[in-house]
Design a protein around this nucleic acid. Structure first.
Lengths: 308, 308
DNA sequence: TCATTATGATAGATTTTATCTATGCAAAGA
DNA sequence: TCTTTGCATAGATAAAATCTATCATAATGA
């Protein structure tokens, strides 16, 4: 069994076609056939069923593929270690952010990052927190950005920034004051985001404190919520950074929340605690630092050996 | 980079000598030299410093070796998957038990296991719980046996059995009763085991409930404790299975604990939750079942997909 | 200091393996 | 039925891993 055979298996699983997979691997189709046959022979098990014009993994094959991906990934880490030791910042960087955070930081982050570190091939995706932590743990992701407070063996949390929650009021119920006192609007409808786990939990805490027995509606995302508020009245909670995405008129509807209700959320970077690619991960915090408002940044990031 | 090169690196790190490592790998010394040179060339970094008659890993090399071990381990899992799918029970099985449990079950376990599954190359060692869980998580161990209640991502707990705590009294303070009422001996010294984390915690709970402000002494292991009690009077707490190791005379000093003080401990098998080698792991519970007293076994093991 | 020994590196030959080109063969679709 | 699609096979070739033999060097010790 060789790493190369394993990569062939992985690629074949992606393509489900010998000719295409071979091309992707930079070899010819007969070579791929032969190598697969050899591996199957050695393991004495079929990995792909190719009897009926379709290339599909066998039951055992599917498990082998998953494990092959692990093995190849671990092997590729060796090159990353070397690059890291040389202080170079290059190679692949797989980053994720939770849906309730991504829209506020990713656009600018990507722009800044690609400019600063052109040798890094950056992959960014939105991902829910739970999934994100799993992917970090198993090495498919290098880092993830989501709400602070996730504790998990083998994963470090590195605080990034703190942002306030604000209230977005409908025009109807707008008062001529700068701060929002929850008491003012107890009779109004509060709208909150559905499914955005981390944002909703925060919002719920607020709700529980405020809206005793009141009806609560959920929408798919904050933009929709704001449109709902605009049309139907009531109010919703938005994170501070969402203000940047509002238009001139809408910004007039934003109020600070008065009092001590849970009114902020902390956001952290999550990484594997194996200490590989420290330099690479520093580039993430370096980049964030460049465009985040100074007041929101958490200085104590330094204590984790990651500078900021 | 090939898996073979990585195994050469690993072996060379073990031997720290080219000729010996080459022999261990079944190749000649020049081949090993060449292969290492090739890998170092490819990575463009020295893995071993061999300038001064001694073969030692460089700083980067040390990290590479650790990662190489991971990669090779993950790759070797593929063969395990295949063996598992074929229903065969063979190959290596690395098992650990915590020091406060090992002496009671390992001797008989090993005897029974080797008899039933001669194709398995069983490795057993004593290990503290914390270390054990780490080793299971990183794949160096297949399974570990210790006190129940350790929760950790990626690791399953499978309850094995429950055993009572008993009291071992000195001859002096022996009473002519079958049960031990803690009140009877509040003025006596209670001796407990030092360092045996899991046993001590249980014992401490008991102590706290009982000996308010009383002096407590600690000894290295239970055998010593019993000798201390025999000589100095007082009492100590021992797990039920320890009785089997006591001699005729000593057994007369054992009493049940009366009342509701924490008086039992649960023991579990810990395994990685990746579901590979299910058959193999079933052999562990199968074997335990064969010689454990029926009343101590936990029936609900079945719910984890592992039969018992 | 100078042979001796131990240990890794190098050279060149040889074997093994991976890969290529060309072709065969079987199933699906027209 | 005939064509197309797609994997397997054969035989040749290129690349690699490995071998034997030998060299170079640093530590060892008389």
């Amino acid at each position: 069994m060789t790493l190369q055979q394993l990569t062939y298996v992985i690629e074949l699983n992606r393509c489900r076609n010998f000719a295409l997979a071979a091309e992707a691997c930079g070899i010819t189709q007969p070579t791929l056939s032969a190598m697969l046959a050899k591996l199957e022979d050695e393991l004495d098990v079929r990995i792909f069923d190719r009897s009926n014009k379709k290339v599909t993994p066998t039951t055992t094959g599917a498990k082998i593929i998953v494990q092959a991906e692990r093995a190849v990934r671990e092997a590729s880490r060796i090159s990353e270690i070397v690059a890291e030791e040389k202080g170079s910042v290059s190679g692949p960087l797989r980053l994720a952010a939770s849906p309730s955070i991504a829209p506020y930081i990713l656009p600018e982050f990507i722009r800044q990052y690609l400019k600063s570190y052109p040798q890094v091939s950056l992959t960014v995706e939105e991902m829910r927190t739970e999934n994100m932590l799993n992917e970090i743990a198993n090495g498919k992701l290098d880092a993830g950005i989501t709400i602070s407070g996730n504790v998990r063996d083998g994963i470090f949390e590195i605080p990034l920034y703190t942002e306030k929650f604000l209230v977005y009021l409908s025009e109807d119920c707008k008062r001529d004051q700068n701060e929002f006192r929850p008491e003012d609007l107890e009779h109004e409808n509060m709208w909150i985001v559905k499914e955005a786990q981390c944002l909703r939990e925060s919002a719920f805490s607020f709700c529980k404190a405020r809206a005793k027995g009141k009806q609560i509606y959920e929408a798919g995302n904050i933009d929709t919520l704001i449109r709902i508020v605009d049309r139907n009245g009531g109010y919703t909670i938005i994170p501070e950074m969402h203000v940047a995405l509002l238009n001139e008129r809408q910004r007039k509807n934003v109020r600070r929340i008065e009092g001590d209700y849970l009114s902020e959320r902390r956001v952290s970077l999550y990484i594997k605690d194996d200490c590989i690619r420290q330099n690479m991960l520093n580039t993430i915090t370096d980049t964030l630092r460049r465009f985040m408002p100074e007041g929101m940044l958490n200085r104590r990031i330094a204590q984790y050996g990651i500078k900021l």
